[in-house]
Design a protein around this nucleic acid. Sequence first.
DNA 1: CGCAGCCTTGAAAGCTATCAATACTAGTGG
DNA 2: CCACTAGTATTGATAGCTTTCAAGGCTGCG
Lengths: 223, 223
Amino acid sequence: MSEAMEQLGRAPLFRNLGEDVLAEIAGFTHSRSLDRGEPLFQAGDPFRSFFVVNSGHIQLSRLASTGHEKVVEIIGPGETFAEAVLFMDGKKYPVDARALEATELLEIGAEGFNHLLDSRPGLTRNLLGALSKRLHQLVQDVAALTLEDATGRVVGYLLAQAEGAGGEVHLPAKKAAIASRLGIQPETFSRVLGRLREAGAIEVEGDRIRIRDSERLQEILKA
Amino acid sequence: MSEAMEQLGRAPLFRNLGEDVLAEIAGFTHSRSLDRGEPLFQAGDPFRSFFVVNSGHIQLSRLASTGHEKVVEIIGPGETFAEAVLFMDGKKYPVDARALEATELLEIGAEGFNHLLDSRPGLTRNLLGALSKRLHQLVQDVAALTLEDATGRVVGYLLAQAEGAGGEVHLPAKKAAIASRLGIQPETFSRVLGRLREAGAIEVEGDRIRIRDSERLQEILKA
DNA sequence: CGCAGCCTTGAAAGCTATCAATACTAGTGG
DNA sequence: CCACTAGTATTGATAGCTTTCAAGGCTGCG
């Protein structure tokens, strides 16, 4: 099994597929490396391929007319992105993508992949599942942005990240990027963390946050 | 061609499908009527079917722990909803759905539909397209919620609704519901409309809004 | 006519953004 | 090894927008 096939297999999107399918996909895939801060594509660029992150982190963001930037998503190892663009009318990327650090990824050619789809039901199943999951996540985000205030969103984010990570959160990006992802300013993010720390709910050490009192966080979320 | 088949065919989700496929789908479909305000399902209910709106409007909303309600989406004639739940892990509806007015819809059984999928590539194509479109829409919403202020969101909404409607917008629901959809309070919505009216950009008559000065609106959006 | 629901308008409070200045950190070069 | 610098994070003060609470107006229907 080639290296590309192994890397593909690690992504949920390609889970449970036969080796033959993986081999086919690997056929129109090649690996890419990005340096910290290096752009991958811009909003409006013609869509030709989508990606799997192998190591590092990619940030997806949108630029407002005012020059402000909003981080839509932060993609980590094993995750795919831009696969939804395959099925959209105007074949253009809708967001900007750039590496937050040195990042390795696989680029999967859209054309070849598209041809595979109709003959591989399992593949379309996985795709539908992936899109549905992202959809659900976005609905959650929209709800949080309107129903929760800054503190609530930060707490929600911390609890979600701590899930299955043993009460320790490793922020996947600079705090300013996380703040943008949460729809708040860096200053507000800092203040909220400060308040949570003073309340004894968390401990902060650089980009590591330890959840000290999970129950108190839940209470704050409900308040 | 049965009535159900015709109604199905009007939805973009079932566009470009052979009559044989439509007939099969119609086989596990039955129509339902809802009165104004009547609930269709609640968040957490087990998922058994998804829906096509035939006439009227359905509101999808989420309830926060504080009791506040956020309108996620307002679904009109020809549109489908809850189809994404088909592919999610925990087969439960993630939102509440209820009729905003007397509404006719088709209920499509999940099990039967699911069986059809693997043998009908065209159907999965349509599904992938529909999910991608919704995904893109949600990304837009998230961006608007964080990048635009209340005025910007209202203007964006009006321009989007007026698209192809000849500069006249017919609000599909009570203003309070629209406001929630836009992530603002009813009072704020009212005030923003008032300001736009005073600026001569729009005219408001109940639930009808005429765009009087589209350019000025675009400017406000960019300001 | 009167009531109920919805929308509008007003005033005050609260939260977050913004502006500004100060720490802090890591990486660089002397 | 230390000093320096650039980027990043924290902290403070203020302004602005939106929410909240409250009251008044409007409309349709019994």
